[in-house]
Amino acid sequence: MQETLGLLGKLAEALERSADPFSQENARLAALPREVLPLHNPTPRHALAPGVWLDYQPEAGVETRVGAAEGIEAGVRFQVESIGSSKWYSFSYEIPAEALRSKRYLGQILRCSSEGPARFRLCLRYALPEGIRDVFARQVCVLTGFEKSGASNENVVQDELVFVPIDANLAAQAQGAEVLLFFEGRSFDVTLHAIEAMVV
């Protein structure tokens, strides 16, 4: 038993160290639910906070609302009534490219919920001298939405741990980097309660 606790303690310490390169970014993301303003159909590539964006294709008929989530657990809520003809709808934030060098994986600890089923995929974007290059996680995050509890429905909050492999060549060339969540579906209602970046 003592040995197991010792291993868990070492694992917790390792996870804390792996988040150190992104301490500023993680602090900014943690503050976002308190700072985000209510929005209705903002201009694409809208800055929710410095270095944090909501984006979709311009003039594509997207109907969306964004704001602080109401309820017990804080978060940022993304309500999409229609994706229109947009080829993407994403939440993203910048990270320092130098933090990726000599590392193997970029990890994201995500705490989220949804009103009904929803899906999104994690992407690491490298800003290179010749343009951008996107690398996607193999895993698609699937949110289940409500679950039946007696006579009422309860919102299910899910914790996800997702990794994207880091390309050493791209990381060496990158002048900047960005983490993106690409949401899927014609309509959805997702709340991001917490996001934390780490490297392994």
Rank of each mutant, 00 (worst) to 15 (best):
V135G: 02
V80I: 09
S90K: 14
V179G: 00
A177T: 05
R121I: 10
E70F: 07
K87I: 10
E196F: 08
R45E: 12
D55P: 02
H40W: 06
A171W: 03
L11V: 13
K10R: 15
W53Q: 05
E35S: 09
A174F: 03
A177K: 03
A197Q: 03
S152N: 10
V76W: 00
R125W: 02
P129T: 04
F146N: 06
Q79Y: 11
E94F: 10
L124E: 04
Q139E: 15
S92V: 07
Q175M: 11
N169H: 09
D189C: 14
D55F: 08
S85Y: 06
H193P: 00
E196M: 14
F182G: 03
T43K: 11
R28F: 02
L110E: 00
E70M: 11
R28A: 15
I95G: 02
L54P: 00
Q24S: 14
V162F: 06
A118Q: 02
V199D: 00
S102E: 13
E63T: 12
S102V: 06
L54M: 06
S152L: 14
R121A: 12
L124W: 05
Q24H: 11
E70R: 15
G131N: 11
E196C: 14
V190H: 01
A47R: 15
V179T: 08
E98V: 12
D189H: 13
E70W: 09
W88A: 02
F91W: 13
V157R: 14
L7D: 13
V157H: 12
V80T: 03
F91V: 05
H46F: 09
L15W: 10
L170W: 05
E147W: 14
D159Y: 10
L100C: 04
L29C: 07
F163N: 01
G67S: 09
P165I: 00
W53L: 10
S92R: 08
T191S: 08
S113K: 00
Q24G: 11
F120Q: 05
L48Y: 06
F136P: 00
L5E: 15
A68Q: 12
S18E: 14
I166V: 08
G176P: 02
G61P: 06
I132V: 12
R65H: 08
V66S: 04
E63M: 12
E35W: 03
G107H: 03
F163K: 05
L143E: 01
Q79V: 15
A74M: 09
E13Q: 14
P33K: 01
R133E: 11
H40C: 07
Q158I: 03
L161W: 13
P38H: 01
G84Y: 00
V156K: 07
P58L: 08
E25D: 11
E70I: 09
S90D: 09
G176S: 10
R133Q: 11
N169V: 12
